[in-house]
Amino acid sequence: MSGARGAWWARIPEPVLDAVVVVVAVVDVLINLDDTSGPAWAMATLACAALIVRRRFPLPVFLLTLPASLMLDIVFAPFAALFTLSERSRDRRLLVTCALLFAVASATPWPLDDLSSHERAWTLVYFFYTLATAAAPVLLGQLVQARRDLARRLVEIEEAREHERLLHSQAVLARERAQLAREMHDVVSHQVSLIAVQAGALQVAAKDPDFREGARTIRSLSVDTLDELRHMVTLLRASGGRSTELTPQPTLADLHKLVTTSGIDAELTGELPPDVSSTAQRTIYRTVQEALTNVRKHAPGATATAHLWHDGDAFGVTVTNTPPARPSLPLPGSRQGLIGLKERAELLDGTFASGPTGDGGYEVRLRIPNRAG
């Protein structure tokens, strides 16, 4: 994307570029104006003026250039309109139709009259020549559109990689904290406990008051140190346990923050009963988290809805996303995330299903029976 922004033409203000396009179109019209009738003048003026709003209304502006193409031998105004339409439209059939319309308008003689067989043959030849020429703005517009989509997708991929690197560093830090907590609990705490026990025994057995006071001080300091160690171990485990590497014991209360910070246009609807078990809450949280991650990776520009539901027999969540708003790159995926969600659901005697929807989107559905909640 940096390359697209760094191109010199991308730094030209749009009003200046529009003015240049209109001026060139006017010059093209003036060059091809001889003894032209009033309607031809009017159509040429309308075609040149319409180019000012070609970015907002590309298809109507292109259609407005066709009468001028029929009456005059001009190419720049319809080409500029056709390029803008090709840059913004993803409908290939529409672009082919517009190219055919331009070729027909340019090849048809004006004023319309009876043609000899020789002139009809040359008209047909000119039609195919013009049609081949019209392919240039169409292909160039599609190339610019694909380049813009690719640049945007590369930025999204880089953001996703940065997010993954952050999560990986957090996971590594969490494992180190968990290992440190185990070492402190198994080794250091054990040794300090032995010191406290031995100091207590010396305090009881000592005859000398000074010696007894020294043993009491050692025992007191050892007990205080044990309390500090236990507090530190608790803190390390809270931030480094396996179940809390990314989000410490996520619950339904954390779903709203997960949805709003997912990086996509998503919303959370519905609610669940208040007596859902903590295990089921974590499973629902991980399901929504994995589904939103997949939307971000594989459906750029799509919107998503996470709907919490419950009935008499079961409860769960359904995450649905719309079709992608722009093409996505074919990224490799192991589908281990969906397999893990299915295994989580089976541990609760539930079911997990995922698949495409009828409108081109995707749906993930988790169902957990009430007896497991």
Rank of each mutant, 00 (worst) to 15 (best):
S106R: 13
Q198T: 13
G350M: 02
V27D: 09
S354I: 00
R56P: 08
D224A: 10
H190L: 13
A372K: 07
V53L: 04
E162G: 08
A47R: 00
I339N: 15
G240A: 00
G301N: 02
T322D: 13
T130S: 15
H298D: 05
E346D: 14
T217P: 00
F79K: 03
V188P: 06
R55A: 15
A345D: 08
E14W: 10
R153M: 13
L180V: 07
A291L: 01
G340T: 12
E159R: 12
M232Q: 09
L221T: 11
S193F: 11
D73E: 13
H168T: 11
F83E: 02
A238S: 09
M71T: 05
A253R: 11
E271M: 02
D149S: 03
R182E: 13
T293G: 04
D73N: 14
E271C: 05
R326P: 04
H231K: 09
L140N: 08
S220E: 15
L236E: 01
I52Y: 11
P300A: 00
V24Y: 02
D313K: 11
N321F: 04
T303S: 10
V104E: 12
H231M: 10
P39V: 10
R161P: 00
I195E: 14
F315Q: 08
P250S: 07
R54K: 06
L124K: 06
E228C: 06
F315T: 07
D114S: 14
S116F: 00
A132T: 08
A353K: 12
G373R: 12
L252H: 07
T279R: 11
L246V: 08
E87N: 03
N294D: 09
E228K: 12
L64D: 01
E290W: 03
V155G: 11
P327D: 05
L229D: 07
G312L: 11
E363L: 07
W309M: 07
A151E: 11
Q198Y: 10
A253D: 13
A171L: 03
H190P: 01
V295Y: 00
V53Q: 02
P250N: 08
G373S: 14
I339Q: 14
A42N: 01
G316R: 04
S2Q: 11
P209Q: 06
S328R: 03
L46Q: 03
P250D: 06
D34I: 01
G200S: 08
E290D: 08
P137G: 02
L94R: 04
L124C: 09
T305H: 01
V29N: 02
P324T: 10
A103H: 09
A304Y: 01
L255D: 09
L101F: 15
E164D: 13
L95M: 06
V27N: 06
V22I: 14
R365A: 12
A353F: 05
L347Y: 07
S220T: 15
A205R: 06
N321Y: 03
D224C: 01
L308Y: 04
P332I: 04
L82G: 01
I52W: 15
R230L: 03
F79A: 15
S117A: 15
Q336T: 12
S277M: 01
C98S: 12
A47K: 00
R344G: 05
T36H: 02
E346F: 09
R335H: 10
G312P: 05
E159I: 08
S243F: 09
G270E: 04
N294Y: 02
G312W: 05
A196K: 13
G263W: 05
V138N: 00
G350Q: 04
